[in-house]
Simulated scan of single mutants.
Amino acid sequence: MNNCTTEKIIRISKIVLMAYISFFGLLVMFSNFTDYTTNYQFVAHILSMDTTHNSERTNYRAITSPMLHHRIYWLIITLEVTYTVYCLVGTFHLFQKLNASAREFHEAKKFSIIGLLIGLFIYYVCLQIVGVEWFNMDKSQAWNAKDWARHIVDFMLPLLMYIALRIER
């Protein structure tokens, strides 16, 4: 424990937390590739607004084209892969600079920060803003991921702030 200072524990905690969110990304990717149909159905139902008890005032928002459903789903998958790769690379860079100077460790945060920003775009902008506010996802009894997405954002946003903080000396 002689070499285990508070500064080092803080650095290790940043690496471990990035590893957690990277692991989550890997599981999401695995699910999207191995259970494409179930996840595609979710996207198709949300975009079609067929389970949201929508009114004539909101029907114009629905996207009913299966071709567009697949393309939008592949865009989401691409973003999730990108977020995961950035977080994995960011975790690796932080690990490499664990014993480096404060400046070098801080500079190693770039990929982690970019990955978390992409993750927040997926789970906050795409799901919570567009999914809930535009496609009324929260009105669906069967196809509602609002709370699931909120839990992810509730982890990612504070993690982004923690990673970005320059508290290392």
Results as ranks from 00 to 15, higher is better:
V16F: 00
D50W: 02
F30C: 11
M18V: 05
S31R: 13
V16D: 00
D50Q: 00
F23H: 07
L26I: 14
L26N: 12
T52M: 12
F30Y: 12
V43F: 02
Q41L: 11
Q41A: 08
T38V: 14
F30V: 08
V16G: 03
N39S: 03
N32M: 12
Y20C: 11
F30K: 08
T34W: 07
F24M: 09
Y20H: 04
A44C: 03
F33T: 13
L47N: 04
N39F: 13
S22K: 04
Y20F: 09
M29V: 13
F23I: 10
A44T: 04
F30L: 12
Y36H: 04
S48Y: 03
M29R: 03
F42H: 07
F23C: 14
Y40S: 01
T38K: 09
F23D: 10
I46W: 03
S31N: 13
A19K: 00
L27G: 15
K14L: 05
T34D: 09
S13D: 06
Q41R: 12
A19T: 09
Y36K: 13
I46H: 00
M18L: 14
I15N: 05
H45L: 02
S48W: 00
Y40C: 01
S22I: 06
T38G: 12
I46D: 01
N39L: 13
V43P: 02
S22C: 09
V16R: 02
T38D: 14
A44D: 01
V16K: 00
Y36T: 15
I46F: 00
F42K: 10
S31I: 11
N39E: 09
D50C: 01
K14Y: 05
D50R: 00
T38I: 13
M18D: 05
A19Q: 06
H45M: 03
T51Q: 13
T51A: 07
I46E: 07
S31E: 09
S31F: 10
